[in-house]
């Protein structure tokens, strides 16, 4: 090794030590969250077809419900459906359900699976040894997934509207954005919880499918909430998307914006967001400690 290289190395070591010596742990590192989100988005942009496909795929998932409704109920929306749901267009009803549900699906598959992807790439342990609060990494993953999810949801909405010839009230745009924002914040907590569970249980294909299919089954996506048994309705209201779907659906289809109902929905969503954040962070912290103690962090 030459004298010059040794000097360079010493300088780098000295600089690193300076960084570590002056480093003060913070509760939240926004710059790390942004960097992590940008990294995820950069990877996503390397496969632009994926975003397009994920915007298009849900169409293939909900079209069977529309075809089934035609087969068992006839070409027009049935009187029974109108009676229990309060809406006279099944297709218009279902599209909004899927538009909102995509956010929940994204928080389960995206945020939750993020650490599994890092695990497979062999970067999870280095990532967790960086002097960055975990919440920043989790939020970074959540931000990138929200951006991708919104693009996918918009593709699905516009595509479905043009294929099925349905339309929604333009006055719904502002309240929809407000409801979606609060709902997405709540879903971050939900996603953190799934991420913690994946750290412990490892196999995300089973866990995420289990969580995703169960929440899909109890969500009023393809049917009104009162089509579910009473105890299941209660469980459904514990998901942030249920209030989101019901509120957005009402405003988007009827165009009527009742301030009292809307405020109640926003308050309930805000409450759920706080609960899910507390639950999500606690679950994740416990899962991280549990896996670290057992040396399972990078294991499969």
């Amino acid at each position: 090794m030459t004298h010059q290289t040794q000097e360079d190395k010493d300088e780098v070591t000295h600089q690193s030590s300076d960084y570590l010596e002056t480093f003060k742990p913070r509760a939240m590192d926004w710059s790390a969250a942004r960097t992590f989100a940008m990294k995820n988005l950069r990877i996503a942009l390397r496969y632009p077809a994926n975003i397009m496909i994920w915007g298009f795929l849900p169409l293939l998932w909900f079209a069977p419900y529309i075809l089934m409704a035609t087969a068992v109920g006839g070409p027009e929306t049935t009187a029974h459906f109108t009676e229990i749901s309060g809406y006279d267009d099944f297709i218009q009803f279902v599209i909004i359900g899927w538009f909102v549900f995509l956010y929940l699906d994204n928080s389960i598959w995206g945020i939750g699976n993020n650490f599994r992807v890092e695990q497979f790439s062999g970067t999870l342990e280095p990532l967790f040894s960086t002097p960055v609060p975990r919440i920043s990494i989790l939020l970074g993953a959540a931000f990138s997934d929200s951006i991708q999810g919104t693009i996918q949801a918009m593709i699905l909405l516009l595509l479905s509207m043009s294929i099925f010839g349905v339309s929604y009230s333009l006055t719904a745009i502002a309240p929809t954005i407000i409801v979606l924002l609060i709902m997405v914040i709540g879903l971050y907590g939900f996603g953190f919880m799934v991420a913690g569970m994946i750290l412990v249980f490892k196999d995300p294909s089973v866990l995420t499918q289990l969580v995703s299919e169960t929440s899909y089954m109890i969500s009023p996506v393809n049917y009104p909430i009162n089509a579910l048994p009473k105890p299941v309705q209660f469980a459904a209201y514990l998901l942030p998307t249920t209030i989101g779907i019901i509120t957005i659906r009402e405003i988007a289809i009827t165009g009527a914006w009742n301030l009292l109902n809307f405020s109640q929905a926003v308050l309930a969503l805000g409450g759920l967001a706080i609960v899910f954040w507390l639950l999500g962070l606690a679950t994740f912290q416990f899962a991280e400690k549990w896996t670290k103690q057992r040396g399972h962090m990078g294991g499969f």
Partner: peptide, 22 residues
């Protein structure tokens, strides 16, 4: 989990176990 949502949706549409359209 795959079958039950279809049954709930079907019930919401038909209101019973019979379907004249089918």
């Amino acid at each position: 989990l795959w079958f039950i949502p279809l049954i709930i949706a079907g019930m919401a549409i038909t209101g019973g176990a019979e379907s004249a359209a089918l």
